[in-house]
């Protein structure tokens, strides 16, 4: 029988980074635990060692300086939803954080966990933060670096041990945003497809800049740049956006899952685009 995992409760960021470095590939960070604790259902072994981030104060802060919102990786979905409520620019984030999973999970699951779980295709925060042009901070004993979220998503599966996602930076832009997710049950589920949208408008009310991110359709969320380009210069019109999305949706290869086939996820994208646009009004 394998020994049960060890657990070290870090009380500061430097202690956490030290502990992760020392444990190397044997160790992993644990914040809310909502994904790691389901390892038995996935028939995955636990790591030999976990470094608890719960008691690291730096990771729990939400701050705003110089027009940049900085969200600690240890902030839970519930706290994030509350913190950004009522701000049209961040509505996409409030909805992503406030509607994912269920209330008890939202009280435990963290921003960092949502972004770092490579096998979780239906994560709500990922597309929401992508459309907000977020950056992430990766810290290690050697120092910190900052990189765009999209870049992080492409390297997260190969992140060396000892490196920890510590913060997310969301630049303020004066845009308006919306999050359209499609669970199978009305009451709530992991969404089968997500469209996150953030736009700025020119003085004539036309779309000056659009950022669209698509989640849950493929294994990793990504920006839909062709649609973004197609939207620029158009009025904020749900039908028009729907038409543009219909023409471009074939660039997605939907993932087949137990809950929904790939074609379904792609089929509903134009509807979600329209819903997101209409929600901006």
């Amino acid at each position: 029988m394998t020994a049960s995992p060890s657990f070290y409760a870090a009380s500061s960021l430097s202690a956490a980074l030290d502990a992760l470095a020392e444990r190397g590939p044997q160790g992993a960070p644990l914040a809310g635990g909502t994904w790691i604790m389901r390892a038995p259902i996935r028939h995955e072994p636990l790591k030999p060692a976990y470094v608890g981030l719960d008691g690291v104060p730096e990771l729990g802060r939400i701050e705003e300086t110089d027009g940049i919102l900085s969200i600690g990786a240890g902030v839970t979905h519930a706290r994030l939803a509350e913190a950004v409520a009522g701000r049209p620019e961040l509505r996409v984030l409030a909805e992503a954080a406030g509607r994912s999973a269920n209330p008890a999970i939202r009280r435990a699951a963290t921003v960092g966990g949502n972004l770092c779980t490579t096998d979780f295709a239906a994560a709500d925060l990922v597309p929401a933060l992508l459309c907000l042009d977020a950056e992430v901070e990766i810290a290690s004993r050697g120092g910190t670096e900052r990189l765009p979220l999209a870049a992080f998503l492409s390297l997260r599966h190969s992140l060396e041990p000892g490196r920890l996602l510590t913060r997310v930076f969301v630049p303020r832009s004066g845009a308006v945003s919306a999050h359209a997710r499609l669970p199978l049950r009305k009451a709530g589920d992991y969404p089968t497809a997500i469209v996150s949208l953030s736009v700025t408008r020119d003085t004539a009310g036309r779309i000056a800049q659009a950022r669209v991110a698509v989640g849950s359709v493929e294994t990793v969320a990504r920006r839909w740049t062709r649609l973004e380009a197609a939207l620029v210069g158009t009025p904020l019109c749900g039908e028009q956006a729907h038409r543009a999305a219909t023409e471009l949706a074939d660039e997605f290869a939907g993932r087949d899952g137990v809950e929904a086939p790939g074609w379904y996820r792609v089929s509903v994208l134009p509807v979600l685009v329209r819903r997101a646009v209409i929600a901006l009004h």
Binding site: R185, A187, D189, Y190
Partner: peptide, 16 residues
């Protein structure tokens, strides 16, 4: 059987 628990086998919830 592909559905292995409450995540993948969806029973109605209160709002349904």
């Amino acid at each position: 059987i592909r559905q292995n628990g409450f995540e993948t086998y969806r029973v109605p919830l209160a709002a349904d």
